[in-house]
């Protein structure tokens, strides 16, 4: 099981566990506020935007071009922005902290 911590816009800290699927799916299954995942994870809605804690950015990696195009026009974009539907859950992410962007 991989432990993921979300910090919502209201500064609520929630740690949840999962072992498959994407970070977005994990967040939606645990009703993390601000992660809607409207499109189910095909990179079309940008309702799963998170800021990755800087020390984890290398493990998570940069967004693809298509994801980047989506992020470019979303609110609160930083160099640590990712759409969580595009981050598959994996062992190396254990302990990661993600701030919900909107």
């Amino acid at each position: 099981m991989v432990k993921i911590t979300f910090i919502t816009q209201e500064n609520e800290t929630i740690t949840v566990e999962g072992n498959s699927g994407s970070i977005m799916e994990l967040a939606v299954n645990n009703t993390i506020k601000g992660i809607d995942g409207d499109c189910g994870g095909v990179c079309s809605c940008a309702t799963c935007h998170v800021h990755v804690a800087p020390e984890y950015m290398e493990v998570v990696g940069p967004p693809s071009e298509i994801e980047n195009d989506m992020l470019e026009l979303d609110d609160n974009v930083t160099e640590y922005s990712r759409l969580s539907c595009q981050i598959p859950l994996k062992e190396t992410l254990d302990g990661i902290v993600l701030k919900v962007a909107n």
């Binding site: 499109c39 095909v42 990179c43 079309s44 809605c45 693809s64 989506m70």
Partner: peptide, 16 residues
């Protein structure tokens, strides 16, 4: 099962 599908069938941005 198209995996990357950044379509705009429901519009985009503020007025989606």
């Amino acid at each position: 099962d198209r995996k990357m599908n950044p379509h705009v069938a429901f519009g985009f941005s503020h007025h989606k």
